[in-house]
Simulated assay, not measured.
Amino acid sequence: MDATTSSSHAYIANLIDKYGDMIYRLSLTYLRNRQDAQDVCQDVYIKLFRHMRSFNDDEHEKAWVIRVTINTCKDAIRSPWKRWFLPVSDDLYSITSNDQFDVVSFVLTLPRKYRLVIHLYYFEGYQGNEIAEILNLNEGTVRTQLKRAKELLKTKMLGGME
């Protein structure tokens, strides 16, 4: 193994250590199926290896990894082999209580566009303007989607108790 191959392997190993859990959680949020999420993770790792880049900072790198993950999820959904209605996985995120499981279960019932912005906002800690940049959307669209997602979650969680 030459020095270039060794540094490439170290680079990919570093990306996987840094972002592996995030890639999996994001894929699972997007696809709602453990097996498909694992397949997407492998595809993302291959894409990261094939298109190694240098970045100005960690935030730019993270945003790029998220964008690659989302695009790979979209590819998986468009695949003719994709099964559309699948059970929700129960190993999502690092759930430590029933309350957390309930919240995540409700999030997974949201339409995909809402699940994605909720995940990026609450689980990855991005602000509206950053989400807009990552998803190539207007910031106003992201704010609207977040607002509607919160309203849907509130309705689902309260179950008509208002």
Rank of each mutant, 00 (worst) to 15 (best):
Q100G: 10
I77S: 09
K113H: 14
H119L: 01
L137T: 03
T5H: 10
I66T: 01
P80D: 11
Y45D: 05
A132G: 14
L92R: 09
T96F: 12
A13T: 08
P111Y: 11
L153F: 14
G125K: 06
C73I: 04
I77Q: 08
F101G: 04
S105V: 02
D75M: 11
L152M: 15
S27V: 05
R50D: 02
I131M: 08
V44Y: 01
R148G: 00
K150Q: 09
Y93F: 15
H9D: 09
F106G: 04
K156H: 12
Y30M: 04
L108W: 07
A37Q: 13
D21Y: 11
D91V: 11
T72G: 05
L108E: 13
T4K: 14
S27E: 06
D99S: 15
I131K: 03
T69N: 05
V104H: 06
K47D: 00
D102Q: 15
R67V: 06
G20F: 05
L120W: 00
I66H: 04
L15S: 03
V40C: 04
G140T: 14
G159D: 14
I95E: 07
P80G: 07
A149N: 08
R53I: 01
I118N: 00
I12R: 02
Y30D: 02
T96H: 14
S105P: 02
H119D: 02
L158D: 08
L48H: 00
D39I: 07
S79Q: 10
K82V: 09
L92E: 10
R112A: 09
N138C: 13
W64M: 06
L116N: 01
I16A: 02
L110Y: 03
R112S: 08
R143L: 12
W81V: 12
Y126A: 05
I23S: 00
I95N: 04
T155Q: 15
F123D: 03
D43K: 06
I118P: 01
K154W: 13
V142F: 03
S105G: 06
I134A: 13
P87G: 10
E124C: 03
Q145L: 14
A149Q: 09
M1F: 13
K156V: 09
D2I: 14
N56H: 13
K18V: 00
V142E: 02
V107N: 07
K47Q: 05
M52T: 08
F101N: 10
I131D: 01
T144S: 15
E61Y: 01
M161V: 13
P87A: 12
